[in-house]
Design a binder for these strands. Structure first.
Length: 279
DNA sequence: CTGTGTTCCTGTTCGC
DNA sequence: TGCGAACAGGAACACA
């Protein structure tokens, strides 16, 4: 379930176990995920200290003491499992038996074992020299980071200028804004009260300046992602996690709106929205 | 160039 | 309960 908020939560979980610790052992249990692992993958990792663990869009970036960066993407079904057993605890020795779809395991000098599990194998791991990171094919085309100051109504409007694609589809385009996925695209449009079916160009003037809808949408994107990160990090339970996503045929929750949440396929993906209050 | 559809892969859910 | 079809939160790619 990894969109930007879920990846950020993974980053925060892993950071204390990995950063300033050494990769003492690496088990690579198959030759590839979506792409083959790079040449000498395991050997290039073993013995390296993780200097930092950062996130860019839906990618995790582990900076290594060798000067290389371990690039990781969770795809649709990727997740990390952590055995944070202290090595000084005799009961915990040898307890990290691999499960089905455990593809890569990291034994850290912290004592933690970090296992990457990904049934669908749409995930990705690669190693890149730090000075070539920005030119890596998967990173070089990414648009602005939505929670950064680089992203606002102006950059959003500029990116949508002249685009005839539906607004929802534009939000999934990682060149427009990097890190939104199918859930939070629907959620942000709902908060901004914008129809997913509008042409993306309609939030900008012909010169690429933001219309009021672009202001609302940029703000809604930031709000929805920030809320999701906070909710996930609090491990909060709520009966319904989303405003519209996966709520087909349910009543619209907006005050005073009598609409019903609809589902429609756009560019092969499900979009959820209220056709009454989203225009 | 632009936008749409297909594809990679496996697990879960839904209707019969 | 079994079984096939549809669908799933991503993104590269082929193609009109």
């Amino acid at each position: 379930m990894p969109e930007l908020p879920e990846v950020e939560i993974e980053r925060r979980r892993l950071e204390p176990l990995m950063v300033r610790h050494r990769l003492e052992g690496v088990v690579v249990r198959r030759p590839d995920l979506r792409m083959p692992f790079p040449e000498g993958f395991g050997a290039r990792l073993i013995g390296q200290t993780v200097m930092a663990l950062d996130r860019r869009a839906k990618y995790l970036l582990a900076s290594l003491s060798s000067g290389e960066v371990l690039l990781m993407h969770l795809g649709m079904s990727g997740a990390f499992r952590i055995h944070s057993n202290s090595r000084h605890d005799p009961l915990s020795v040898g307890t990290a038996e691999p499960l089905p779809h455990d593809h890569v395991m990291f034994q850290m000098s912290s004592g933690a074992i970090v296992t990457f599990n990904d049934p669908r194998r749409f995930g990705l791991m690669d190693l890149v020299r730090r000075d070539r990171l920005a030119t890596h094919p998967v990173l070089s085309t990414l648009g602005p980071e939505p929670l950064s100051a680089d992203f606002d109504a102006f950059t959003l409007a500029r990116a949508c200028r002249g685009k005839r694609t539906p607004l929802k589809v534009a939000l999934l385009d990682q060149r427009v804004v990097a890190g939104l996925g199918n859930i939070y695209a629907s959620e942000a449009l709902y908060v901004a009260r914008l129809s997913p079916r509008r042409h993306a160009s309609t939030i900008a003037t012909t010169t690429g300046m933001p219309r009021p809808s672009a202001d609302r949408l940029a703000a809604a994107i930031k709000q929805v992602l920030t809320e999701a990160i906070n909710r996930l990090s609090a491990a909060e339970y709520r009966s319904s996690r989303f405003r519209v996503y996966d709520r087909e045929a349910a009543r619209c929750r907006r005050r005073g709106c009598r609409g019903t949440i609809r589902r429609q396929t756009q560019a092969g993906r499900s979009t959820f929205f209220c056709a009454v209050c989203q225009r």
